[in-house]
């Protein structure tokens, strides 16, 4: 039982890391970024390529994070701002188009082979409290805990965090108050992009590095983000973790075949019963 919960927390932690990015972008731009997972895959491949070329893994990771931090705001700056009429439909279509295009780009640049990806930490698994966990799994949990604290601290204590909150509250008022709204929105996308690449690097040693690695993770992260309320970072983290644990328990006690359908059931139920999510604010009606 506890073993299932522990392994669920690990996959849930990765969903949560992805979900953070989705929520940050939704708060900043009001867009569901369906391309978020593919961006993460691309960044993870960059890390792999640098590491294969002989760079030490931490340096490769840094380069990958930088790629995420630069590429992600480009989506907002060049694609979404380039839309002549910015409606929910055109925005969704644009990020869906980017989902396909980025998947194709990764395929074109890095090929379709599956690679074994190096774990960030190696060594024998650790046994504690009657649980056996690999060091990589423990690292995932530490990273998620760290991200949670960093996010909370950033929103509460830094000027950028306050500016982000102001922009997501009302773009117009933030502009009137003299905030550099565009730059703030871009920084949010950059932070989200880095979180995405981090999630990719964390999951790659577990599922192996492949072009289509993040599609499943993105779906589950979307579910986590929605269950958590789309506007709440802490909600997305909590929901992502719970979803991972639920999935792991269903796989362990019912059937591994039903783990993925379970996630969708939760997603649809959450949308139908409580569209604002567990922790989000009610969606505003646009007149």
């Amino acid at each position: 039982m506890m073993q299932y919960v522990a392994s669920g927390l690990v996959s849930g932690g990765i969903y949560a890391t992805m979900a953070i990015g989705i929520v940050l972008i939704y708060r900043a731009s009001g867009v569901i970024n369906f391309a978020h997972g593919e961006l993460a895959t691309f960044g993870t491949f960059v890390v792999f390529a640098c590491w294969s070329a002989g760079l030490p893994l931490p340096l490769a990771l840094l380069i990958g994070l930088l790629v995420g931090a630069v590429a992600s705001p480009c989506i907002e700056a060049f694609v979404l701002s380039g839309l002549r009429r910015r409606t929910h439909l055109t925005e969704v279509m644009a990020t869906v188009a980017l989902f396909l295009a980025l998947n194709g780009l990764t395929l074109a640049v890095f090929g379709e082979e599956t690679h074994e990806f190096p774990a960030l930490v190696t060594g024998p698994p650790i046994e504690a409290f009657g649980l056996v966990m690999s060091r990589q799994s423990i690292l995932v949990l530490v990273v998620v805990a760290g991200l949670t604290l960093i996010m909370a601290a950033m929103f509460r204590f830094t000027r950028l965090g306050a500016a982000m909150r102001a922009v997501s509250e009302s773009r117009e008022s933030a502009e009137l108050a003299g905030l550099p709204v565009r730059r703030i929105v871009w920084s949010v996308w950059a932070v989200a992009g880095m979180a995405g690449v981090l999630a990719g690097v964390l999951i790659a040693p577990i599922v192996y590095l492949n072009v289509n690695m993040m599609i499943d993770v993105l779906t589950k992260a979307l579910a986590g983000a929605v269950v958590g309320g789309l506007t709440s970072v802490s909600g997305a983290i909590t929901a992502g973790l719970l979803l991972g644990v639920g999935e792991s328990l269903v796989a362990g006690y019912v059937s591994t075949q039903l783990a993925t359908p379970f996630v969708f059931l939760v997603l649809v139920l959450a949308l139908v019963v409580r569209p604002q999510g567990l922790f989000g604010s009610a969606p505003k009606v646009k007149l």
Binding site: V31, H88, V92, A223, L267, V268, L271, V272, P275
Partner: peptide, 21 residues
């Protein structure tokens, strides 16, 4: 019926879930 209350991006995610599930 169940998707009555959902709009914009929320509806996109719900239908996305249906298509994948």
């Amino acid at each position: 019926y169940p998707f009555l209350k959902l709009d914009g991006p929320y509806l996109a995610i719900a239908t996305f879930g249906f298509a994948v599930a």
